[in-house]
Each structure stands twice: as C-alpha cells, then as structure tokens.
Simulated assay, not measured.
Amino acid sequence: MNTLATTSAIQAQQDIADEFAFFGDWTERYQYLIDLGKQLPPFPDEWKSEDYRVHGCQSMVWLIPSGDASNMHFDATSDSAIVSGLIALVLRVYSDRSAAEIVASEPAFIQEIGLAKHLSPTRSNGLVAMLAKLKAHAAAALEK
C-alpha cells in the first residue's frame, strides 16, 4: 500500500475506490470502514476539547490541524466506529498534503464508492461538516 507522502490526493481517492470495489456488498464495506477506524493512531483524551470538536456531526468528532501551508497534518477521532472509518478515509486523502492541494481536492471518492447513498443523513451531514472544517483550516493556512 502506498504511504500518504508518496501519493497525491487524487491517487489516494483512486486507491480507496479500488479497495472498496473488492467488496461485494455494503455489509462488507461497513465492516471494512470499522476496521479502518480501529487503525487510527491513538488520540489523547486531552485533545478531546470543545476547541477541536467538529459541530454538525451526530457523533462526537474531534479534528486537530498541525503543520503549515506547505504540509498540513490532521489528527482526528470519533466515538462512533463507522465515523472513525470515515475519518480514516478522509485523513488518507487530505492529511500530510499542502494546503493548496487540500483546498483544490474535491472528495470524489464519497460518490465513487457509493458512500453518499449508504450513509444516514446525519452521518452525511457530519462528513460534510468534517470536510468543511478541514478545508477551512487549509484555507486559513494559505492566507498566512
């Protein structure tokens, strides 16, 4: 598997689409999402503050940006197994990239793998809120 640093956001999205194509049904895809979420790096409890909370999500989600416009890194977690899997996908596409690439990259993988049709409205809203917050951090880094 390619590491984040060696692929573009576009390639990362294609890799995700290829992985999800292996699974025949959404039961398997949800299980894969849950497994991806379990692989997120540890997220210290002290980071779970209101300052980093993503509002608009039904579950609790925290997103912490670091780095600068040349290379932005994001740490994130959720109290929901499926949302943690969504976070793992989002971080694969957007973390450890330049702010310009983050702002310019649309999350096409969400439609491509069929996530848009298979998420509840509240999870979809939360995913949109998380992407908006992540892109806002990148846009702010570009303005500095």
Score class of each variant (00 low, 15 high):
124 S>Y: 14
140 A>L: 11
133 K>R: 15
120 S>Y: 00
94 Y>D: 11
87 I>C: 04
52 Y>C: 06
9 A>K: 04
143 E>C: 01
70 S>Y: 01
8 S>D: 03
15 D>S: 00
124 S>W: 13
3 T>K: 02
99 A>F: 05
8 S>P: 03
27 T>E: 15
91 L>T: 06
110 I>D: 03
52 Y>H: 15
68 D>T: 13
13 Q>R: 04
130 M>Y: 09
14 Q>C: 00
9 A>L: 01
116 A>E: 12
136 A>S: 15
98 S>T: 07
48 K>N: 09
139 A>Q: 15
122 T>R: 10
5 A>W: 03
88 A>R: 12
127 L>E: 08
109 F>I: 04
79 D>Q: 06
104 A>K: 02
4 L>Q: 12
106 E>F: 06
46 E>D: 14
114 G>A: 03
132 A>Y: 06
22 F>G: 13
14 Q>N: 07
28 E>A: 12
24 G>V: 10
31 Q>W: 02
122 T>P: 02
37 G>K: 10
68 D>H: 08
9 A>H: 01
75 D>N: 11
92 R>K: 11
108 A>N: 07
84 S>Q: 13
82 I>R: 04
74 F>E: 01
54 V>F: 07
120 S>H: 02
92 R>H: 11
136 A>E: 15
40 L>W: 08
142 L>N: 02
96 D>Y: 09
6 T>C: 09
52 Y>L: 10
7 T>V: 15
85 G>M: 05
43 F>Q: 04
113 I>G: 03
51 D>N: 13
131 L>C: 11
110 I>K: 05
85 G>L: 08
22 F>C: 13
91 L>S: 07
65 P>C: 10
102 I>A: 01
112 E>P: 00
81 A>L: 06
9 A>R: 00
134 L>G: 08
64 I>C: 12
23 F>L: 09
102 I>P: 00
43 F>G: 07
83 V>Q: 04
102 I>N: 01
67 G>I: 08
109 F>H: 00
70 S>V: 03
119 L>T: 09
117 K>N: 13
61 V>A: 09
84 S>E: 07
71 N>Y: 07
32 Y>A: 12
38 K>D: 13
107 P>F: 01
6 T>F: 12
13 Q>S: 10
59 S>V: 04
44 P>V: 03
111 Q>I: 00
140 A>D: 14
110 I>C: 04
84 S>R: 15
52 Y>N: 15
73 H>R: 13
129 A>R: 13
134 L>T: 08
123 R>V: 08
96 D>G: 09
52 Y>W: 15
133 K>L: 15
83 V>H: 05
46 E>L: 08
82 I>W: 06
118 H>L: 02
10 I>H: 10
13 Q>G: 06
54 V>Y: 06
19 E>D: 08
136 A>W: 11
43 F>T: 07
47 W>N: 11
